[in-house]
Measured scan of single mutants.
Amino acid sequence: MGSVRTNRYSIVSSEEDGMKLATMAVANGFGNGKSKVHTRQQCRSRFVKKDGHCNVQFINVGEKGQRYLADIFTTCVDIRWRWMLVIFCLAFVLSWLFFGCVFWLIALLHGDLDTDYKDDDDKSKVSKACVSEVNSFTAAFLFSIETQTTIGYGFRCVTDECPIAVFMVVFQSIVGCIIDAFIIGAVMAKMAKPKKRNETLVFSHNAVIAMRDGKLCLMWRVGNLRKSHLVEAHVRAQLLKSRITSEGEYIPLDQIDINVGFDSGIDRIFLVSPITIVHEIDEDSPLYDLSKQDIDNADFEIVVILEGMVEATAMTTQCRSSYLANEILWGHRYEPVLFEEKHYYKVDYSRFHKTYEVPNTPLCSARDLAEKKYILSNANSFCYENEVALTSKEEEEDSENGVPESTSTDSPPGIDLHNQASVPLEPRPLRRESEIGSRR
Results as ranks from 00 to 15, higher is better:
Ser3Trp: 02
Thr6Glu: 15
Asn7Arg: 14
Arg8Pro: 05
Arg8Cys: 07
Lys20Glu: 10
Lys20Pro: 06
Ala27Lys: 10
Asn28Glu: 15
Gly31Ser: 08
Gly33Ala: 12
Lys34Ala: 14
Ser35Gly: 08
Lys36Leu: 11
Gln42Glu: 15
Arg44Asn: 13
Val48Asp: 00
Lys49Arg: 08
Gly52Val: 00
Asn55Glu: 14
Ile59Ser: 15
Val61Pro: 14
Glu63Gln: 14
Gln66Glu: 04
Arg67Trp: 03
Tyr68Leu: 10
Arg80Ser: 04
Trp83Gln: 06
Met84Phe: 12
Leu85Ser: 03
Leu85Val: 12
Leu90Lys: 07
Ala91Tyr: 15
Phe92Ala: 12
Leu94Ser: 02
Trp96Pro: 02
Leu97Trp: 00
Phe98Asp: 01
Phe98Cys: 14
Phe99Gly: 01
Gly100Ala: 09
Gly100Tyr: 01
Cys101Gln: 02
Val102Lys: 00
Ile106His: 01
Ala107Trp: 00
Leu108Asp: 12
His110Glu: 11
Gly111Ile: 00
Asp114Asn: 06
Asp116Asn: 05
Asp119Met: 01
Asp120Ser: 01
Asp121Arg: 06
Asp121Gln: 15
Asp122Val: 03
Lys125Asp: 12
Lys128Thr: 15
Lys128Val: 15
Ala129Met: 15
Cys130Phe: 07
Cys130Ala: 02
Val131Tyr: 04
Ser132Asn: 09
Ser136Cys: 06
Ser136Phe: 01
Thr138Cys: 05
Thr138Arg: 02
Ala140Asn: 02
Phe143Gln: 02
Gln148Met: 05
Gly152Cys: 02
Tyr153Gly: 15
Tyr153Leu: 04
Phe155Glu: 05
Arg156Cys: 04
Thr159Pro: 04
Asp160Gly: 04
Cys162Met: 00
Cys162Ala: 01
Ile164Ser: 09
Ala165Leu: 01
Val169Arg: 02
Phe171Met: 06
Gln172Gly: 02
Val175Thr: 07
Gly176Pro: 03
Cys177Ala: 15
Ile179Ser: 12
Ile179Pro: 03
Asp180Ile: 15
Ile183Lys: 03
Met188Asp: 09
Lys190Cys: 07
Lys190Asp: 05
Met191Ala: 12
Met191Glu: 04
Met191Asn: 06
Lys193Asp: 13
Pro194Leu: 10
Val202Thr: 12
Phe203Leu: 04
Phe203Gly: 00
His205Pro: 08
Ala210Glu: 11
Ala210Gln: 06
Arg212Glu: 07
Arg212Trp: 04
Asp213Lys: 15
Asp213Ala: 14
Gly214Ile: 02
Gly214Ser: 12
Gly214Gln: 14
Met219Trp: 04
Trp220Gln: 03
Asn224Leu: 11
Leu225Trp: 14
Lys227Tyr: 09
Val235Cys: 11
Leu239Asp: 00
Ser242Lys: 15
Arg243His: 08
Ile244Ser: 15
Thr245Met: 14
Ser246Glu: 11
Ser246Ala: 06
Glu249Phe: 06
Glu249His: 12
Tyr250Pro: 15
Pro252Ala: 12
Gln255Ala: 06
Ile256Tyr: 08
Asn259Leu: 07
Val260Gln: 00
Gly261Phe: 12
Phe262Arg: 07
Ile269Ser: 08
Phe270Trp: 09
Leu271Met: 12
Leu271Tyr: 07
Val272Trp: 11
Ile275Asn: 07
Ile275Met: 11
Thr276Pro: 11
Thr276Phe: 06
Thr276Gln: 10
Val278Gly: 01
Glu280Ala: 12
Ile281Glu: 01
Ile281Phe: 01
Asp282Cys: 08
Asp284Gln: 13
Ser285Phe: 00
Pro286Arg: 00
Pro286Ala: 03
Leu287Phe: 09
Ser291Val: 00
Ser291Asn: 11
Ile295Leu: 14
Ile295Cys: 09
Asn297Phe: 12
Ala298Asp: 04
Val304Ser: 14
Ile305Met: 07
Glu307Lys: 03
Ala312Tyr: 10
Thr313Leu: 10
Met315Pro: 11
Thr316Ile: 06
Thr316Pro: 08
Thr317Met: 13
Cys319Gly: 04
Cys319Tyr: 10
Arg320Asp: 02
Ser322Cys: 03
Tyr323Gln: 01
Asn326Gly: 11
Glu327Ser: 00
Ile328Phe: 01
Leu329Pro: 00
Gly331Phe: 00
His332Arg: 05
His332Ile: 01
His332Glu: 04
Glu335Phe: 04
Glu335Asn: 03
Val337Pro: 01
Leu338Ala: 13
Phe339Thr: 15
Phe339Gln: 15
Lys342Gly: 09
Lys346Glu: 04
Val347Met: 13
Val347Phe: 11
Arg351Lys: 10
Phe352Gln: 01
Thr355Ala: 02
Tyr356Gly: 02
Tyr356His: 14
Glu357Ser: 06
Val358Ile: 08
Asn360Ile: 03
Asn360Pro: 00
Thr361Gln: 06
Pro362Lys: 02
Pro362Leu: 02
Cys364Gly: 07
Arg367Leu: 02
Leu369Ala: 02
Lys372Val: 07
Lys372Gly: 15
Lys372Met: 12
Tyr374Ala: 14
Leu376Val: 12
Asn378Pro: 13
Ser381Thr: 13
Phe382Asp: 03
Phe382Tyr: 05
Phe382Ala: 12
Tyr384Asp: 09
Val388Gly: 15
Val388Gln: 14
Ala389Thr: 09
Thr391His: 09
Ser392Thr: 12
Ser392Met: 07
Ser392Ala: 14
Glu394Cys: 08
Glu396Cys: 08
Glu397Val: 11
Glu400Asp: 10
Thr407Gln: 09
Ser408Arg: 10
Ser411Pro: 09
Gly414Ser: 12
Gly414Trp: 04
Gly414Glu: 14
Leu417Lys: 07
Ser422Phe: 10
Val423Gln: 13
Pro424Thr: 06
Pro427Gly: 03
Arg428Leu: 09
Leu430Asn: 09
Arg431Tyr: 08
Arg432Ser: 15
Ser434Asp: 15
Ser434His: 12
Glu435Gln: 10
